[in-house]
Design a protein around this nucleic acid. Sequence first.
DNA 1: TTTGTTTTGGGACGATCGTTCAGGTAGTTT
DNA 2: AAACTACCTGAACGATCGTCCCAAAACAAA
Lengths: 187, 187
Amino acid sequence: MVKLQVDGRKARGQKRRTELIAATLRIIERDGVAGVTHRTVAAEAGVPTTSTTYHFSSLDDLLVATLISCARDMATEVYWMIDRARARGSRGAEEVAGLLAEALGPRRGRTMAEYELYLLAARKPELRPAARRWLDVLTSMVRHDDEVAFRVFLAGIDGLLIQGLIDDEAPSAEELRPVVDYLLKPR
Amino acid sequence: MVKLQVDGRKARGQKRRTELIAATLRIIERDGVAGVTHRTVAAEAGVPTTSTTYHFSSLDDLLVATLISCARDMATEVYWMIDRARARGSRGAEEVAGLLAEALGPRRGRTMAEYELYLLAARKPELRPAARRWLDVLTSMVRHDDEVAFRVFLAGIDGLLIQGLIDDEAPSAEELRPVVDYLLKPR
DNA sequence: TTTGTTTTGGGACGATCGTTCAGGTAGTTT
DNA sequence: AAACTACCTGAACGATCGTCCCAAAACAAA
């Protein structure tokens, strides 16, 4: 017999865990991974310091959980972007350019957080599947007859994003458009 | 009148400063920016702890100096790569693929350090010129009639590198070759 | 040699860190 | 009701952190 009514205590615990992850992500966006400590996370979430150690066996665990959650969100976003593009029969250039401009503009902090994940994944193999998630979503959803061209497209997206992060001002969707067009154009 | 014989004291100081920078870079390669403290750097360089605070006004200064030095080295390397390619009349595909494979293989730690610089530059504007240095070297040395294609090439290189860092095994120059060819092929 | 400058290095201070622990509360089961 | 489980939290420990201070050493200029 499966219990339908969940344990209220566990539900509260789960809720606080997600709140801690959300608070951690906000801190990473604002100050980077370096700014994440038990105390800063707890203060951001408005909970006592020891709450983090109770719900996560270590700071590293909290960091890993946060970045995995962040990667899942990004993969979901990529999924819906493709879905939107398909709905209107587009080849996707406009959607991709718009998403890039957004990632480098209003969502700049989030984008930095995602590349902190990349770098952490480079050192921690257990994070790599999470870091590759959005790549996998794209690979599985998009038909690519030209394997090489597709790899170039994926690399180009990452390159545009990380180079956009060290630009003094974020590029607009219009500026990115020709580059994205070039990346998507078949030959 | 310019003094030709430099002050022996200042010479020693300068030498130790470069030793500290070298030690810091080794630590970043091994443990990331997170592993850099006054004490770890001093231990790595085999000097007393306070040596770092004397030669660099703060830990942040040491970090910035290290990453700027790292960026300069990389720019120099790119310069010579182009020079080598030109000397043998190549279009550069082989050289680029070889350099990428090396960056993701034996020089993996160094490559991670360079992307830590990128991420730090995203948060610290004063680091951005240094982070863009190798891009500038390429831009100024290579003739590019197609502006968009060139931007795609630069983004592709960065994308291949950072994605290569989260691969479980480093790609070989042979695997990278078709992608680099595609990036360089004019249309 | 004397005086001034620069580098060196040991010691220590206060702050902050991750983590532990024990007592207390809330919710579930019997 | 009692027993049990899960969550919560304030206090505190030892470790490590960045940085400061000051006396000694090395070197240059007088």
